[in-house]
Nucleic acid binder design. Sequence first.
DNA 1: AGAAAAGGT
Length: 740
Amino acid sequence: MSGTSRRSPKETESKHLPIYRHRDKLVQAVKSSTFLVVTGETGSGKTTQLPQYLHEAGFCKDGRIGITQPRRVAAITVAQRVAQEMQCTLGKEVGYQVRFDDCTSQDTQVKYMTDGCLLREILADPGLSQYSVIILDEVHERSLNTDILMGLLKKIFSDPDKATKGRSFPLKVVVMSATLETEKLSAFLSDCPVFAIPGRAFPVTCTFGSAVGPKDIESTAYVKEVVKVALDVHTSEMAGDILVFLTGQSEIERACDLLFEKAECIDYRYDVHDRTVEGLLILPLYGSMPTDQQRQIFQPPPKGIRKCVVATNIAATSLTINGIKYIVDSGFVKQLNHNSRVGMDVLEVVPISKSEAQQRAGRAGRTSPGKCFRIFSKDFWETCMPEYTVPEIQRTSLTAVVLTLKCLGVHDVVRFPYLDRPEERFILEALKQLYQFDAIDRRGTVTDLGKLMVEFPLHPGLTRAVLRAASVGCEDLLLPVAAMLSVENIFIRPGHPEKQKQADQRHRALAAKTGSMNDFATLLSVFQLCKSSDRPSAWCKDNWIHWRALKSAFSVETQLREILLRLQQKRDFPAETFDGNKSELFRRCLCTGYFNNVARRSVGKVFCTMDGHGSMVHIHPSSSLFDQEAELNWVIFHDVLVTSRVYIRTVCPIRYEWVKDLLPKLHEVDVYELSSVAREEVTEEEMVKWEMKEAAKRPSEVSAADAMKKMEKRSTDSSVSDARARYLQRKQQRQQSKAL
DNA sequence: AGAAAAGGT
């Protein structure tokens, strides 16, 4: 064990970091307290230096130092830099671990990892016995996993046995955050000391606009406005690159088009993603863009040319672009919110929080003083923007989280120490779902099945389907599907109308090949066809399939298969026999995981969900079932998308008989008691009647009963339909702005 | 008759 310090060229550099003066005091602070909060803006050096200080101060005598990051790339790149500074080979004294990439060894004393990795480790070793110090970094981002880790680490110390067992001195916990809500963090961790490190950011002057006021929450005027402001900056401000924040791909492409048109310039490059106009280089940036195109963003522009990057929120935390001096902020972001009133996740455009606006502004002051142009008014700032972003844990489905907690022995998941407590109905909804999956019993205790389920890095519904498949011996059908559904969308749909037509045609052909009108089967087929192809990447290109996404589906499938094998060898695995054809077997396995997502044809092309909400939904145009009329009465679906209508996407026809035993279970669970459930024979008619009656109890929502009554009037008075109305309004505005 | 933000096990 080496605790001696080593001199390196890099070390001289690190001595100039703001954190260096505080070195001894920091080490002392960690020594004298169980919990410590360290705050400091980007550039203070806390992420790279603190672990090294602790390492040299001898904290690795008793175990490792573990540092968590919310993102993979960050964990890897920081580890690389620290290994360099400590002059050791990456993977030896300094290492990192992220999914699919474990670069650590027996010698690893400083270990960077994603927060999800540490959570997995806690499942295997609740006392974290191999660590002497745990450092949670970027806590202010409030990622779901980091929030859970905060609660778990706090809880470890309420159980003195856990915090000291197998150690010569107790575990230390350091929480690192930007200078936000530090009192709250300290109060949460037994009023622990807060250590503030000055940052090294340059001042950014912010100005407010007048185009977006409190009445414009639903408007899309901001796209035109950011374009106008960006051009103003280009013509009237000193040299320096521009970063524009918008919400999504189509919006960004439209803004780039507008920028290009309005600059009245000549397109002398044929590549749409590399256009230079009037000394302005316009570059779109969003997550699903090809990586090599993303890389272009980081290159400095040619001499005398100003770069203008039009980006999603990806540029707020995940990517840092050098040379940015001007920010143009739309004030909006696209966010996935779980709506427990209609029991589904909805992707929607919402105003950002004040703290997020400040984070965006800060992107202009990394290398020199900068300016931030907010297109919204001061009034909008005051009345429409919340102080802080609602943390993920309060706006996401908690099913997987609750299962993890239960498996860690947290029985009372409602009273778990959350930094911000989720609404109780979210937790109860999660408990109900887990009960329906047989992952917990009626007293809320984890079942053997639940213990198997927690091992899989998947949504519990998908896991349930995979386990059912494994017990009847058809996991080869379900593992690829589970993998495909847990990576980003693999079907490419370009913006260009002609190419769009081509892509749609290809995808339709792929679906037709299966001959089964089942979108899950299409996914399976795409997986298999590409895997067995000689030139998989060319195959993807031909078929408008996202090669990067498919590659990650391949790795996920391999990982899932390994986990399944390990469990089958280790434990008594449930087994059942089933006779019937393969297609039926496949679909019945899916039903085991998706009985929350059942819909039945109501009138014409309208389907009604049978989840107790009775929402009216349509089949999405990308589905192979889209134009199928008759004989198709019951379906299950993977997810819901709210745009011009409420669409269900990735759909599969089923028979009522396959879900009838599961549906009553769905409705009769008393979530407060999770009490015993009667399994009675229920006919299809009774089922539908029940759903209509339940739907009628909620007049404010889109219900089957409502829809039947007002079908001609095309009623839209519901929370889901609110989203639809907003969408239509936006669409209208878009068309108007195009016409102008 | 029509479409997807960012992460992560």
